[in-house]
Design a protein around this nucleic acid. Structure first.
Lengths: 115, 115
DNA sequence: ACATTCTATCGTAATATTGCAATGAAACGA
DNA sequence: TCGTTTCATTGCAATATTACGATAGAATGT
């Protein structure tokens, strides 16, 4: 035991959970926010921006790239990373849909005798 | 090493990452979706709904309760869980804001010579 | 060719997460 | 009171994540 039992859940549940888990680290949030802020590609200033080692940043970038939300292209000795607009939009809608599903019920929840 | 270096990041980044990580498991997504679907409190049918052991479900519920997105109230021998509308709305806006920050730039990203 | 720069990968250690059986604790009904 | 039901907690094992130093690979400039 110890591994997530993905087979118990739907494809959609696993997908949303995967995206959420990828966003579930402040370094990766910071990377994405930085990319959003400059609204362009970044090449080498990530090590100064975050306080982490180069190898660690590379790992986080790899996860975000695996998720598809960022893309990298080689530019000489450095690599340009930027947000993939399509995937960003797709995930945005996924979260929107998830959160939009809930409507605040007028009747109070978890009142005695309700269950 | 091995622990996340939360001190390197802002409170907002850590908060968003924490929420995302809590959503980063299909069982917890499934629990929330189930709560959304019935739009009321649940008391005991979670073990049948998911295929996990009671102890495991209890753990996931605890995490969601710690996050604040669900609340539980005692009803006899069972416990009613339901979504906390305020927190749900708060997190909904947090993710909306995060995703809304990015505007698809008109110029192509990661073109040669751009960096 | 050689040194330099930038990034990915490997190896390793520390820590966190996931899952379950077993055990507790609290409320209910007979 | 005693057994039942329901959920939380504990203890443990398996797996995943995080972080970094060291190393390797690829492109550039001299």
């Amino acid at each position: 035991m110890g591994a997530t039992k993905t087979d118990l859940f739907t494809k959609e549940q696993n997908e949303l959970a995967n995206i959420a888990r990828a966003l579930g680290h402040p370094a990766r949030i910071a990377i994405l926010q930085h990319l959003v802020k400059i609204n362009a590609c970044i090449c080498n200033d990530l090590k100064n921006e975050l306080g982490l080692a180069q190898a660690t940043i590379s790992q986080h970038l790899k996860e975000l790239k695996n998720l598809g939300i960022i893309q990298g292209s080689i530019d000489g000795t450095s690599i340009c990373y930027c947000i993939d607009p399509k995937v960003w939009e797709e995930y945005k809608i996924l979260f929107q849909t998830f959160f939009a599903g809930y409507q605040n019920p007028d009747k109070k929840c978890c009142e005695p005798g309700q269950c």
